[in-house]
C-alpha cells in the first residue's frame, strides 16, 4: 500500500477541505501521509491548527498556482 494519499478538495465549499481530511484520517493508516489539495487559502491555517490539536503531524504547506498543498501525517 502506498504511504501517501492525495485528497483533491479543490473547489470543495461543503464539506470543505478540513472536513475531507477528517474523513480521510479514518481511512489512513498510522504513518501514512495525506496531501490535501485546496483552493481555499484558509486551509493553510485551519488544517495545521486542527492537526496540532489532535496531535498528528503537519509536514508542510506550499502554494502552487492558486492551489494549496497541505501535507500531514497520521501519527497515532
Amino acid at each position: 500500500m502506498s504511504n501517501r494519499r492525495t485528497i483533491d478538495a479543490r473547489g470543495s465549499f461543503c464539506p470543505g477541505p478540513l472536513m475531507e481530511l477528517i474523513a480521510a484520517m479514518k481511512m489512513a493508516e498510522v504513518g501514512e501521509e495525506i496531501e490535501i489539495l485546496s483552493t481555499d487559502k484558509g486551509s493553510a491555517s485551519e488544517i495545521p491548527e486542527w492537526i496540532h490539536k489532535v496531535k498528528h503531524e503537519h509536514v508542510g504547506t506550499e502554494e502552487k498556482e492558486g492551489v494549496w498543498h497541505v501535507l500531514v501525517k497520521k501519527t497515532h
Binding site: 465549499f13 461543503c14 464539506p15 470543505g16 478540513l18 472536513m19 477528517i22 484558509g42 485551519e46 491548527e49 486542527w50
Partner: peptide, 10 residues
C-alpha cells in the same frame, strides 16, 4: 461542529 466554525460553508 468538527471544523473551526459553526458550518463548513463560510
Amino acid at each position: 461542529y468538527p471544523v473551526g466554525r459553526v458550518h463548513s460553508l463560510e
